[in-house]
Simulated scan of single mutants.
Amino acid sequence: MLSNTLLQLDLKALTGFLYLLEERHVGRAAQRMSLSQSAMSRLLIRLREAFDDALFIRTASGMLPTNRALELEVPIKQMLEQMASLQMTPEFEPSTSRRVFSLLTTHYQAQAYVPAIAERFYQEAPLASLQTTTITETSLMRQTEHNGDLYLCSEYIEVPNTFKHTLFGREKFRCIMSAAHPLAKQDVISLDEYLSFQHVLVNMGGPMRVVSDSLLGDRAKERRFAFRTPYFMAALETVSRTNLLLSTSGLLPSRFQQSFGLVMKDLPFEFPDVKYYLCWPRSSSGDPAADWFRAMAKEVVQSLIPYPN
């Protein structure tokens, strides 16, 4: 156990001790500490009481340190250096890191952006690992702990107020259909034509909320969802094999337009661009590794998204 006198010492007093060792003079040590000479003398008294030793003996040539003072020099200097290191932000080197990074996102963004993020990730951090997990509309609100390094979310994902977020861009909603669909050769489709066909709904795992229903107003009840799935690729391939219509963000369908034989049309009603965000827990801010991961992912996504922020 430390004595009460030792417990009362602060970093300023220990720094003053080292200055006294270097200067061997109370006045010069006081100047370096921005203290008066009397305040420096009082600090020396506290040091002597704490270590139960005179520490410095006045001589004609200055303050001569005792053997005890010389013994204390190295451990006190090491302790102060360790304390100073607590203020330093640790460096992060991606090329040598073996850290496991965690990315949580929706099915759509996992397929639209994660492969490109992973490509860049392993170019810069070949020894590190990347794991992804699916989130749903409300899953983040139900969790008590959030340990992910990065969350890719659309505006339809509910995010806790303990998160920070930054907008990285927008996508337009399009109407997706098979190239063999009866409407495929039309430049423009009417709302009546749109509602006359059955539709696919990609459910993100939350409540069965259809955002476009509010935009369709009373006519929303005319739309019938004949196929519901949480899997975006299953929805695209189903559309390519049927006369069903899918209304969704356009980036990912555009990639599979040729291989699946898809056609993309403007929706026959106004639909605002969908906003996409990078989110992360406030508690992870200031982590150099997580900061690198987020900056890298944002750069990759913004190179892909049709309307980067």
Results as ranks from 00 to 15, higher is better:
M1W: 13
T5R: 15
D10S: 14
L14H: 09
L20F: 01
E22Y: 03
E23V: 05
R28P: 00
L44R: 07
R46W: 02
R46A: 06
A50T: 12
D52E: 14
D53G: 08
R68L: 15
L72Q: 04
Q78P: 00
A84M: 08
L86C: 12
L86E: 13
Q87K: 12
S97F: 00
R99G: 05
R99H: 09
F101P: 06
L104P: 00
L104C: 12
Y108D: 11
Q109D: 15
Q111D: 07
P115Q: 05
E119L: 14
Y122K: 12
I135V: 15
T136N: 09
E137I: 11
S139Q: 06
L140I: 07
C153W: 01
V159I: 15
L167P: 08
F168I: 10
I176Y: 02
A179P: 04
H181K: 10
L183S: 08
A184V: 02
S190L: 13
H199I: 12
M204D: 14
G205K: 11
V210N: 00
S212F: 13
K221N: 11
R223G: 05
T229H: 08
A234K: 07
S240H: 10
L245E: 05
S247A: 15
S247L: 06
S249V: 01
S249C: 00
F256V: 11
L262W: 08
V263L: 06
L267R: 01
P272L: 08
S285T: 09
D287W: 06
A297H: 06
A297I: 06
S303I: 04
P306A: 14
N309Y: 14
